[in-house]
Design a protein around this nucleic acid. Sequence first.
DNA 1: ACTTTTTCTTACCCTCGGGTAATATAGACA
DNA 2: TGTCTATATTACCCGAGGGTAAGAAAAAGT
Lengths: 234, 234
Amino acid sequence: MDTRTPASERSPWLPFESRRRARDEKREAVLRTAVQLFLERGYHRATLNEVADRLNITKPALYNYFHSKEDILFECWSIGQERVEDQLVEIEAAGANGLTTLRMLVRTYAATMASDFGASLVRFNVADLSEPNQKTTLAGKRRIDRAFRDAIKQGIADKSIKPCDVKLTAFAILGALNWIGHWYKPGGELSADQIADDFAIRLTADIAKSSSPANSKSKKKISKPKAARAIRNT
Amino acid sequence: MDTRTPASERSPWLPFESRRRARDEKREAVLRTAVQLFLERGYHRATLNEVADRLNITKPALYNYFHSKEDILFECWSIGQERVEDQLVEIEAAGANGLTTLRMLVRTYAATMASDFGASLVRFNVADLSEPNQKTTLAGKRRIDRAFRDAIKQGIADKSIKPCDVKLTAFAILGALNWIGHWYKPGGELSADQIADDFAIRLTADIAKSSSPANSKSKKKISKPKAARAIRNT
DNA sequence: ACTTTTTCTTACCCTCGGGTAATATAGACA
DNA sequence: TGTCTATATTACCCGAGGGTAAGAAAAAGT
């Protein structure tokens, strides 16, 4: 239910077989392939021909589903952002105290960072998007930032978190989390979930007031977000 | 003594004045301009014509100092890496205990991340370098990683740091630090040094054994590395 | 089976930008 | 003032890759 896709991915366009499948399914296959390639080789070095090749089609076929290369890039980012957004909503709705909320945020966000679409949130360059799309991404980043800061603030207010510089604390936590998107590789010793659980405690240890270790009640509650979008966990 | 260069940078090629200055000075001016532009617009979107324009020269003139665009990119990375390397050596030579060493590492690395050449260590894509240069950069990253892990290990051994998972601890700390290279902008409320000092404590608070707050003795000892290379602190 | 619609391919175009060749200009030195 | 060397400019090449036009080939409809 996590991790990056293991390269052995099936294309809906099988080389010489009967084609025709649901349009959305193909669209999503393009995005999955594209995000992987963009992460592997970088957005600019990855060509649409390569994307098409991996799908057993030719470049112009991609234009049935997307307007431009940048459109694909933005969609990749968008999927990651939407996932995070869903998690934020869900966590905020849970109405836990500050510390618990923060830990839920850390755990889910860490797990997301270990996925392709999650990593795309931090590995892609905002400058490669069009002006309006840049605005959208910036708004998304702010939204995430705010969620973390609000949880910290709330924690300080409800005494579950020690008084601290909210901004810097959030930066430090988000930095450690975002960095996962750069170093995590699926096949390692630790699974994405293990890392997520560890970080949930580790990154909040210094500011947690109650020394009660790792209130692990809320763990399973969040880890399965509802299917809000067809592309899942790749 | 830190921070990113404030865009109002003098080019050694003044529009219509007597030219001819030391070769190295010009070479460095190219690098300073290039690293800024690469950070601003991204390596691929930044063109050599733009670099040249900012220096009041034309593109081919750049080839008097560098073999290729990638050469410039690698040099930018290289300068940042060399700075860090010098700091590592200096800190290791100090022979402090694990926790103090770790804090020194955090402080200096954080300050470096707030500089252009420091940020280039994490903002540039390794895939944009040639094979041999990629190897060099990877070796550099490993070297940094090792320094942090060694400090943590040593701290656990000498009891200045609580037992903990060395690898994940290092990842978390380095993540928070590397992220500075993405969010830090010179004009903000906090100076690079303030952030560095704060992070030195913040990122080690949960694993520090002695609750003695912020052993601030070693602060000034490191913050002025000897001039090992002509390009300083931009 | 014929047409219509959607999807995909072949064959292009065209711009952008890294890199180079040929040449000019500036300073150094005589 | 002439020549040499270093450095810069003008003018160009050319490959890569995003994007498109026109038409083939499947589905789908009738």
